[in-house]
Structure formats: C-alpha cells, structure tokens
C-alpha cells in the first residue's frame, strides 16, 4: 500500500485498500455431489439420522456425527416455503441482487430444514412468511451455490427447467470437485499518526524516525510505541539517507509482479543513528559482491515523482567507503 493524502486535512494519512482473493476450495464428496446437482439444476439434500432432510446437505450427521454418504443424498424440489425473511434495503456488493431484495430461510418441498437464499420481490409488502417461492436458475450453471440466482414468488419463476443431462450419460461432464469464491474487501486504511509523520516527511525527501523516551532507541519508520518498553514514542529524529547493510538475501526466484530482473539484492539497511533496520533494494553493484557491513546511500527518484511513499527512494547503492566492523552492527542482526 502507498499512503496518499486525503482530501480533508486529518491528523493521519489514509488510502483506499482492497484485499482480494479467489478462495479455491475442494468440495469433498457430499458438497461435490450437491454442487454437481446444482449444475444440472437439481437440488440434493441429506437425510439425517433424526429424520430431517437438510439442504444444503451436511457432511456429518448432526446427531451421530457419522459421515454422510454422497450416495444417500435425495433430490428435493426447487420450490419451497418461506420460514422467515428480511428486506435488505441497502444491499452490499456481492449479494445476489444489487437492488433491494429479501434474504429468507426457505424450506424446499421435500426438505424439513430451511436454506438461506435471496428472494426477489417488488418490496417488503410482497413478502410473507408461509409464501411459496421458486428457484430462478442461472442461464449457465457452474456448480456453485449462486447457480440459484435467487427465489421468486411462485408463479413468477423463470429460467431453465431441470436439465436433461443425467449422471452416467456418455457425455456427462466430471462431477464438481472444487468451488471458487472471489472475495473482495474494501477498506480505508489509515496510518498511525507516527507513520503519517514519516510519510509526510519522505514526501519532502526527509527521513524521520522517533526516539523512545525510555531506552533511547531510534525507530524508523516510527511505530507509535517502543516495542521494548511499551511507551509512546514522541521525539522526532531526522536521519541521513545513508547507512550500512546488516543482512541481505539474493533474490533468484521470479514471481508475479516482480519489477527487477533477478538476481538482485533485498537488504536490511541500518541508517546512521537508527536502531532498527528496514528492508530496501541494493542496486548498482553485482549481486554477488554485496556484503554485510557495506556502506550504502539512498538513490532518490526524480523529485517530481515523489509522493507519500517509501518508493521515493528507488534503491540504495554502495558509497565506496570501507565496510563497517561486524561488532558495530552485530546487535542489529
């Protein structure tokens, strides 16, 4: 993340942050059969030892805890009865409908336990506990819970009827064994006041750390509290843009999003006057000549490219001065 200035003045810097990941999950046999059923526009339920018929099917019996067999699933109807409902007046991203809709617990015909899903309706006045609803299927079912797009009051249901394909037919595709669920979460990430001071300074080409009032150690970037003493760090300390390499590694492995051609060096750099090293790049020297104790200086990007980010420093490069003694930095390893 890079911190960028907010539009309104604030004691801290903030930036939008999106955390996104496609969760790929193996279904196992029972949910695999359920998902395969959905792909064929059929809804499969589990029969539990206490006589309940449960959709989506459970993998283990709620009473005996014995594994449920995928072979014992039973098909239930794609219509059912609303047990309880709520009107979602302000839908959030990812929900089945992006206009106001209902979430409901629906007991499908042939089932005895309800499933949670969406119901599309004109408004809360169109909803009632006990009403009949029917599944509206996706045009191209994939083997995912969202193959049921939503339910609609019965009589209005559209969409495909159960597909003709049945297990065992020569061109039936393989059963579903995994589901992919994309998750995207949006945050406004705020830096701490101390981090904000650091980023505001680096936007002016200055490196600002903070000193612990108790142990006198200087932290850069500043952290808000001394991790040794647990007291707030208040005194600002400006540091030079030169220091030494304490330890480093040579990156040989290519990875997604890599900006520099391997091999290159990622190093812990201890600025003069600082008590904690931070990670940055070492360039301007063959990777195999980088040494512990080597003296380095920051190479800044052109000023017009600066922002509130550590990327204002393109990398560090050797100063050519003699290496520092091991004893002078061993405490920082």
């Amino acid at each position: 993340m890079t911190a960028t200035s907010d539009t309104t003045p604030s004691r801290v810097l903030s930036a939008p942050l999106q955390v996104a990941f496609d969760y790929t999950r193996s279904t196992g046999l029972v949910l695999g059969a359920f998902m395969t059923g959905l792909r064929e526009r059929r809804i499969l339920a589990a029969r539990t030892s206490d006589g309940r018929v449960v959709v989506p099917p459970v993998e283990y019996d709620p009473v005996t805890h014995a594994a449920v067999s995928a072979d014992d699933l039973v098909e239930v109807g794609a219509t059912g009865t609303v047990v309880t409902w709520t009107w979602v007046s302000e839908p959030v991203p990812g929900q089945p409908l992006d206009e106001p809709f209902a979430f409901a617990l629906v007991t499908l015909d042939g089932a005895t336990a309800p499933m949670l899903h969406a119901v599309k309706a004109d408004g809360p006045q169109s909803l009632q506990t006990g009403m009949q609803v029917s599944a509206v299927w996706s045009d191209q079912p994939q083997g995912h819970i969202t193959d049921i797009q939503y339910f609609e009051p019965t009589g209005e249901a559209r969409g495909g009827s159960p597909a003709a394909a049945s297990a065992g037919s020569p061109d039936a595709p393989e059963g579903v064994t995994q589901v992919i669920t994309p998750v995207e979460l949006d945050y406004i990430y705020e830096a701490s006041p101390e981090e904000s001071a650091f980023f505001r300074a680096i936007a002016e080409g200055r490196l600002v750390g903070q000193r612990c009032p108790k142990c006198q150690k200087v932290y850069i970037p500043p952290r808000g509290a001394c991790p040794v003493d647990g007291v707030p760090t208040a005194e600002e300390v400006e540091l030079p843009d030169s220091g030494i390499v304490t330890t480093f590694c040579i990156v040989n492995v290519p990875f997604l999003g890599q900006k520099i051609k391997p091999p290159y060096v990622s190093a812990y750099i201890l600025l003069e006057g600082a008590d904690i090293a931070f990670l940055h790049l070492i360039l301007g020297i063959p990777a195999d000549e980088v040494r512990m104790g080597m003296k380095v200086r920051a190479v800044w990007k052109p000023r017009e490219e600066w922002g509130t980010t550590v990327e204002n420093i393109s990398h560090f490069e050797p100063t050519g001065e003699p290496d520092a003694d091991y004893e002078s930095y061993r405490a920082h390893l």
Partner: peptide, 22 residues
C-alpha cells in the same frame, strides 16, 4: 460457511433480522 453462505454475502444485520422475525 464458505461454500454455501459466504458466496451470497448474507450480512450480519440480515441474519439477525431473520432471527428477530421468527
């Protein structure tokens, strides 16, 4: 449940409301 519920993004307020109506 990450297989059959999270993909529908049932928010906490909605789930509580289902309970309240019962």
């Amino acid at each position: 449940d990450p297989y059959v519920l999270t993909p529908l993004w049932p928010d906490t307020v909605s789930i509580a409301a289902l309970q309240a109506r019962l």
